[in-house]
Design a protein around this nucleic acid. Sequence first.
DNA 1: ACGGAGCTGTACCAATTGGTCAACGACGTA
DNA 2: TACGTCGTTGACCAATTGGTACAGCTCCGT
Lengths: 199, 199
Amino acid sequence: MTIPVSATWGCDSMARTLADRQDVIPVLAEVFRDHGFEGASLSAITARTGLGKGSLYNFFPGGKAEMAKVVLAHIDSWFRTHVFEPLDRTEGGLTAVEAMFQATDAYFRSGQRVCVVGVFALGDARDLFTEQVHGYFAAWVQALAGALVRAGRDPDRARADAEEVVAGIQGALVLSRALNDTGVFTRTLARLRRIASGD
Amino acid sequence: MTIPVSATWGCDSMARTLADRQDVIPVLAEVFRDHGFEGASLSAITARTGLGKGSLYNFFPGGKAEMAKVVLAHIDSWFRTHVFEPLDRTEGGLTAVEAMFQATDAYFRSGQRVCVVGVFALGDARDLFTEQVHGYFAAWVQALAGALVRAGRDPDRARADAEEVVAGIQGALVLSRALNDTGVFTRTLARLRRIASGD
DNA sequence: ACGGAGCTGTACCAATTGGTCAACGACGTA
DNA sequence: TACGTCGTTGACCAATTGGTACAGCTCCGT
């Protein structure tokens, strides 16, 4: 009945548990992305990850809530290193801003992939993960606004522009998914680029 | 135990069921708004509406799916009469556009209320109500783009602007809810107004 | 070779899910 | 006053939910 682990795995062992927990996180992210927090049932999670409940609760003793927290932390970390910190490091130019748009377009697959944090923000999950949901968007707006200020924009205007860009990205995700048209996302991103570069 | 219907209602009878079914729809909309489609459990619905499951299934034999369809139709109808049609009727000016922004701000309570269609669009429910989700946003973009064209804007530009405004509204809902700050919604709406009026 | 540590699948749990249905009782008519 | 109609209720259903417990397994250090 049961297949020996080594038969399907066959590598050295120490890395096993650590590697697996790490490897599972992106899969969990996809499940939460597709179904939201409430909709991500344990059966869906076990099916997509290929892990039994035992393993899942071994990795994440806190159950679904901990899985979601880890996923949010993983996303936050990705955006911090690939988007927020490059923006923070930028001096005068707008190349980091353009890099942000490219990273965003790639990450969300031109609107075919939805934002987990955005999905959480719209539902009940917001109140379970207030901190992380708030932190993600606040960090994004702040990083972008800072970069715009350093590019010479008026601080109030920079903050307003940053809010509009971040909101615009989220809205483009909603709209392109609703209309099932990646063109909407691409076009909206193009217009947001213009806003970011100061019209 | 049971209170006679006439004691709480006291009107003529023929209208009763019809009136009730109509009255329930906004309550259903609130439940779907708060919890999404999957999250709107029948127990939550019975609690908020005060109706037993029997009455619910008497009004909506199709169950949750029919309730959601009716809610979507109700929302669509509201937007058609209060937003889309005024936009369609407008001739040259932008007063209907400004009216749209005011109606939108009031409807979404400056971002404290979320868009049911947007919530559905991001989740599994999109594929259950493809038609209605698509129709709502397509109609909005089209009505707004038409008004902008009639106000003298280049058709391609008008469509891009309309997409950006509608997406921006949805994004502002996400962002203001995530940051728990209605100011974000108000500010973003102000900037979208500028886009709509041609910078 | 042995033993312990820890990963894994799975049976099981109470609670809840969406949905059904038969009995109840309020109503208008006669 | 009696009756038939019909909306309503809440118990009940199988299925599924998130979560627990545990026995069995593989693996590693000794």
